[in-house]
């Protein structure tokens, strides 16, 4: 069957775009650096023996501000896209989204709890605040997803349809909880809460990258091992079982990877929608639905797309900065509608 792109062409172009996104993300911003300087500063930071005169400013900006932010974007984008693939496989629906199992809304609830209760206690300790916020968001996402999974289980089998409905109900419930905290919040807290809900790669630092890096490694190494089982799952659950796939184990792994991945991403960068929906979908149109290609391709494309979205967020109203969730929604929602209309025709 003729695909739009051969796998080699795809990975070559994705790899090049990925590098281009990193380069642009390091070079552009309120202070634009010459591209060559950015490249040299980047290589120096990697330990390449390049003369450093005249590069001090570039090295400082790249090393201290833009590199952690770029890495955060790559990791968050990658894990959101991988989770999207996992959910679309689990629900056997190309329009499924990681939010379906309640992880994002749970994380939002956890974050709201931390922000509002924290300010109620006279503010969180300055040094711990970001960590506590991330931890609460992560645990909130994990908790709600665990509940959705538990509600979907009956007689030793997990019903995906029940999980979907439980996800909708718990998302609404968590939304009500966030609403309640919003109502209780004072003006300053409200602002924090609102901006957190819109997502941002701002405030990236190397210390905060480590937990996310760990999670992304787990998800990115685990899911591809299950690529063929995921392919079989698309035939249907009983068909996959007859092909020797341990379907219940697979479903548990998919839910766990998504909860872990999206939970960590949301904890690090707030709510960023549509990456998990759009990236796998776009790639499926290019190379087909085989998960052996789709997973690694999503890993690259997710990071690339998020970096480009972040560039728009940074540059559009510079020196002010737009929350990135707004940008991804402005790109993602019309794309989703385009898919719906195209699918109908």
């Amino acid at each position: 069957m003729k695909r739009l792109l051969a796998p080699r062409t795809l990975f070559l172009s994705l790899g090049l775009l990925w590098l281009l996104a990193i380069w642009l993300s390091l070079a552009l911003g309120p202070v634009s650096l010459p591209f060559v300087d950015t490249l040299r500063a980047g290589l120096r930071l990697l330990g390449a023996p390049i003369a450093g005169q005249g590069l001090e400013q570039a090295e400082l900006i790249v090393g201290q501000i833009r590199l952690p932010r770029t890495l955060l974007g790559l990791l968050v984008g990658a894990v959101l896209a991988l989770s999207g693939v996992a959910m679309q496989g689990l629900f056997r629906n190309p329009l499924a989204d990681p939010g379906l199992v309640g992880v994002a809304s749970g994380a939002a609830l956890g974050a709201a709890l931390a922000i509002v209760l924290g300010s109620g206690f006279g503010g969180l300790p300055e040094a711990l605040a970001p960590y506590l916020l991330s931890l609460c968001a992560f645990l909130g996402g994990l908790g709600v997803t665990a509940l959705v999974y538990r509600l979907g289980r009956h007689n030793g089998r997990t019903s995906v349809a029940t999980m979907l409905l439980a996800g909708i109900a718990l998302t609404a419930l968590a939304g009500a909880g966030v609403g309640l905290f919003t109502y209780l919040a004072d003006d300053a807290t409200l602002r924090t809460l609102t901006f957190w809900n819109l997502g941002s790669l701002n405030g990236a630092s190397y210390q905060r990258l480590w937990p996310l890096l760990l999670v992304v490694c787990v998800v990115a190494l685990w899911l591809p091992r299950r690529a063929q089982a995921l392919n079989a799952l698309l035939l249907g659950e009983s068909e996959a079982r007859h092909l020797g796939v341990e379907v219940e184990t697979l479903k548990r792994e998919l839910v766990f990877c998504t909860a872990l991945g999206v939970g960590a991403a949301v904890a690090a960068a707030g709510l960023i929608g549509f990456i998990g929906l759009v990236v796998p979908h776009l790639l499926r149109m290019l190379v087909g639905p085989d998960h052996r290609l789709l997973l690694p391709a999503s890993l690259l494309a997710g990071g690339t797309l998020l970096l480009f979205a972040d560039l728009v967020a940074r540059l559009l109203l510079a020196p002010a900065e737009l929350p990135i969730g707004i940008v991804t929604a402005f790109i993602g929602a019309p794309f989703f509608l385009f898919l719906l209309i195209k699918g109908r025709g």
């Binding site: 069957m1 056997r92 629906n93 190309p94 063929q228 089982a229 392919n231 079989a232 698309l234 035939l235 249907g236 009983s238 068909e239 007859h242 092909l243 020797g244 796939v245 499926r284 087909g288 639905p289 085989d290």
Partner: peptide, 23 residues
């Protein structure tokens, strides 16, 4: 086992679908 109906809704090629039998 060959079920009565299948709900596959992804654009696999014919040989990819048959190839799943070799899993």
């Amino acid at each position: 086992v060959l079920p009565q109906v299948s709900s596959l809704d992804f654009s696999f090629s014919v040989e990819e679908v048959v190839g799943m039998g070799r899993l």
